[in-house]
């Protein structure tokens, strides 16, 4: 069972929920898919080791064979190739690695080469929690291939929790699209509600069942709650706007470790999610 922890807005508490949920359970995996800013390990403090490099195939143009026909640059919808009167210029950060340029080149002047865009790391085997994360190299734009590489390390026999990137762009869809259930973490503020609706729309487009965690509960108003009641969306957990929780967070300590009654709340939430997934897939 794959559970994605997502949100529209950034900073609503995705990592907090993902880390605390993972630590409250036995025998689960935690994958930090927010590859542009993987923060889970700030709270876990695990020793990490490299697993693999994530690469993208990019064109290398042989100027001796190139006839300057411009077909490659015309083809590239991401504008990674520019045809100048005397040469073709390539902009690696815009290349999505589709390989189309080398297919349309009539002169066979384009060869594809691997370019590193990120890496996958894992916690050393002594840790009780199986933890992996992806990292997108600084300056790179394409997070999705890193997330896809990370997801290939899934152990299908155990539940996995994905800490998703914020927003509703391609990287988020790559995470939600791979999930059996999506937990949307939000706060009941105008901004939080607005972006929650965007994220909800994304889960509906992907047909992923969804539940809500209300973070900083007590802050703002009741708009998220009223909306969820009207739409029949379960509120799985409320994390109060609590000084102790905030203090532990600021010290990089997952609050389930210091506040044992929360372990049970996260376990309950997991059981609820399990039941909801079974219901939605028709498994008893």
């Amino acid at each position: 069972m794959n559970i994605a922890i997502a949100s529209g807005k950034g900073g609503t508490g995705k990592t907090t929920v993902a880390v605390n949920l993972a630590l409250a359970l036995e025998d689960v995996q935690l994958f930090d898919c927010d590859v542009e800013e993987p923060n889970c390990n700030l709270f876990l403090g695990f020793e990490l080791e490299p697993v693999e490099e994530v690469t993208c195939l990019v064109p290398e143009i042989n100027p001796d064979k190139c006839t300057l026909c411009e077909k490659c640059a015309d083809f590239c919808k991401y504008n990674a190739l520019a045809a100048l009167p005397n040469k073709i210029m390539f902009f690696p950060s815009l290349c999505h690695g589709c390989g189309g340029c080398s297919l349309v080149c009539p002169a066979g002047a384009i060869e594809e080469k691997l370019r590193s865009i990120g890496r996958i790391e894992k916690a050393s085997s002594q840790t009780s929690l199986k933890f992996l994360r992806g990292i997108l190299n600084i300056g790179e734009a394409m997070a999705t291939p890193v997330i896809r590489s990370l997801q290939r390390h899934l152990d299908e026999s155990r539940p996995v929790i994905f800490d998703s990137p914020p927003g509703t762009a391609c990287p988020v869809l790559a995470v939600m699209g791979c999930a059996d259930y999506c937990v949307l973490v939000t706060e009941s503020t105008p901004f939080g509600f607005h972006d929650f609706l965007l994220a909800l729309e994304a889960t509906r487009a992907l047909n992923v069942p969804v539940g809500v965690v209300l973070n900083r509960d007590g802050l703002g108003d009741s708009r998220v709650e009223e909306f969820c009641r009207a739409e029949g969306i379960p509120i799985l957990l409320r994390i109060p706007n609590d000084r102790m929780i905030a203090r532990l967070y600021s010290e990089g300590i997952p609050f389930v470790k210091e506040m044992p009654d929360w372990k049970e709340k996260f376990e309950d939430m997991f059981e609820t999610i399990k039941a909801l997934v079974c219901k939605s897939t028709g498994v008893q």
């Binding site: 640059a73 919808k77 504008n79 520019a82 100048l84 009167p85 902009f91 815009l94």
Partner: peptide
Amino acid sequence: PGSEASGGAGIRAAEAIAG
């Protein structure tokens, strides 16, 4: 040609000028 590009607008624009 860059005015309506989804990305790499400057590249398309500069290419057109250079050409």
